[in-house]
Amino acid sequence: MQQVRPILADVKTKGDAALIEYTQKFDQITLTQDTIRVSEQEITEALAATSSAYQASVKRAISNLQRYHEKQRPKNYEIDFPYGGGYLGRKWEPLESVGLYVPGGRAPYLTACYMLGVPAQLAGCKRRVMCVPPERKSGKVNPQILVSAALSGISEIYKIGGAQAIGAMAYGTETIKPVRKIFGPGNVYVTAAKLLTFGVVDIDMPAGPSEALIIADESANPAYVAADLMSQAEHDLESAALLVTTDASLVPKVKAEIERQISTLKRAEIIKQALTKFGAIIVCPDLEVAVEIANDYAPEHIQILTKNPRPLAAQIKNSWHCLYWECHSHCER
């Protein structure tokens, strides 16, 4: 908090100058007032630079999200008030503007673009603003992030990351107008900035490090289990990944798969450190105990890799996200 307060104060008082200063300091990128915002040409170039296969996969993901979030659309209602001829009811209105923060420091969070953008678009938010840090080598936003954002209906994109991005969306600057509510994950500095600006602007929640717990039996594919544990561990040095299994013979197979697969991954060092600090494998006598462990631990993500996962999924009470098909890693990467 102490490190973030002066950053927010500078953004509030100095505006764009503070954004330029902190982008130079933290990202080693020199911006000008004219290059803070991603241009239409940059988005066009990104679309041209990414493969048709990638764009098709993004469109497919967007279509799936649209189907899912359409079911969440709330309905207005009115009831007669028995006294005085009035009415009682509830009316839902979309936020006029939302700020969507997409991390990009250690790795591009491609899925965050459409996981944030699609619900905002379906809700009817007229102004959808995205802030994402630029890549240090190029000084530009990762082209796959731009494509994911563009296909999700986001066109107002800024090359700003960290606490300064949250401050810009909360207070506004000469270039970035303030928004009504900020959504999206981030590191401890982003989370601190969201908490400190809450009240000036609304926020979704103070997101913490990613957590995943996999329940597996003897039918689980060890290659999938390993990949899915690492797909969470690669998020951050503080990420946690746990395997709870009823099959002791699965343990050495999963460990061997981790060793085999990790050698091919760019974020191998982060995965190793995260698994060393916050990884665990628990062998339990039956699936009832596995579910009990999962509910007590209450992770962000739970994945069930068993012969008959649906009844187990119904018993999960304390998790934000439950998957019960075999390959989860494609959802995260």
Rank of each mutant, 00 (worst) to 15 (best):
L250F: 11
G161D: 11
K159I: 12
K59S: 14
L229T: 03
E96M: 08
V132G: 03
A170M: 10
D80Y: 04
K75C: 00
E326C: 03
I304N: 04
V102R: 07
V129R: 08
R333Y: 15
M1F: 02
K59N: 12
Q315L: 13
E234K: 03
P94T: 09
I154D: 03
S57H: 02
Q121S: 15
L122T: 07
Y68T: 14
E211H: 02
G99F: 01
I62K: 05
A46L: 08
E93I: 13
P178Y: 05
A294H: 02
S249V: 09
D204T: 08
N64F: 00
Q232G: 01
N187Y: 12
L65R: 02
I281V: 14
E42L: 01
S57V: 07
S138H: 01
K91H: 13
E45R: 14
R333K: 00
K317I: 13
C284P: 14
G161M: 06
R260I: 05
Y101W: 04
W92N: 14
K91V: 14
T50G: 02
S51Q: 07
K177Q: 15
G86I: 13
S57Q: 11
E40D: 15
K12C: 06
T23Q: 10
A240M: 11
V201G: 10
E292T: 13
P94V: 09
L275K: 04
L122F: 00
A150D: 14
T23R: 07
R333D: 04
P94Q: 08
A313W: 02
Y87I: 15
Q3M: 06
D247W: 12
H235V: 10
I36A: 11
H235Q: 09
V254S: 07
I282W: 12
E292Y: 01
A120E: 02
T23D: 07
R106V: 05
G172S: 02
S239I: 09
G85M: 05
I271T: 10
T197K: 06
N308Q: 14
S52V: 15
L196W: 00
Y171P: 00
I215C: 11
G105A: 12
Q273H: 08
T306L: 10
V141F: 03
L195T: 12
V129S: 10
S263G: 15
T30N: 14
L31G: 00
E257Q: 15
S219H: 11
F26K: 05
T191P: 00
L88W: 08
K25I: 05
N142A: 04
Q273P: 00
K25V: 04
P285D: 13
Y77C: 03
L116Q: 10
L146I: 09
K177N: 12
V283A: 06
F183A: 07
V4M: 02
Y324E: 11
